[in-house]
Design a protein around this nucleic acid. Sequence first.
DNA 1: GACCAGGTATTGC
DNA 2: GCAATACATGGT
Length: 271
Amino acid sequence: MIKEKVEGGFNKPSSFENNLSLSQTLDCGQAFRWQQQDDYWKGTVGIGSDSKTLEVKQDNLSEIINSDFWSNYFDLELDYGEIKNELSKISPIMKKACEYASGIRILNQDYWETLCSFIISQNNNIKRIKGIVERLSVNYGNGGFPSADTLAGLDDDVLRKMGLGFRSKYIHDASEKVASGEIQLYELKKLNIKEAKDELMRINGVGPKVADCTLLFGFHRLECFPMDVWIKRVMETFFPGKDSSFFGPFAGVAQQYLFHYARTCSECSFN
DNA sequence: GACCAGGTATTGC
DNA sequence: GCAATACATGGT
């Protein structure tokens, strides 16, 4: 039902392509190192020299389909058509958001890069987040996003030069805890949501929202429902009195559709 | 120049 | 527990 990719290829290639819009997926605020150049999307993902770079355009996705790494990154095994069918039953607004954001998929991103990206995201805008992540990567990333070891060795004034501002002490604390092994990100996979969230929130500068974003976009915990300013407005307006459990096991996917809808749809009442 | 941006820590009740 | 406030920086 949910599995779309089957042994030896895809059973429903056309439906899969309907459920992957590069521009929606790569520019909806879940990843920060992708850029559009003409009709291409170009990005580098992962840490240091282990990072990978891809150039791809919407009308030729073969590089993604034929690569195990990129198939996994773009989450091709999940049937988003089926998820949208289920979410659309929840309410007319949810159905509208599913249609409007129909090409968004939740990426499988590196834990550390995702954690840092969303620490940086607090009280910040997406354009500036991208700039900071890019500067950190270009200057200290050895190809990809800088490792925890690397960032833990940088002085506060060096981080501030990258534009981090008051978040520099948060990145420093995260780096120290991860580099020292005090927090083992890989081990969080084994924990339930509450335990994993509490563990992440031991980092100075990581609260409920950043923890949820890290779990959703880095650990692929699709039931996580990050409450940011946009989603608060959506909830107050369209789902008063409800919480994330209202959206079921794919609440995180619903959240991302609603986020994109609220933020960019000119018809809706938020902009 | 005030206000905002995918929040969080701190402070004061 | 909950409301108010500071926090760096750059864009509008």
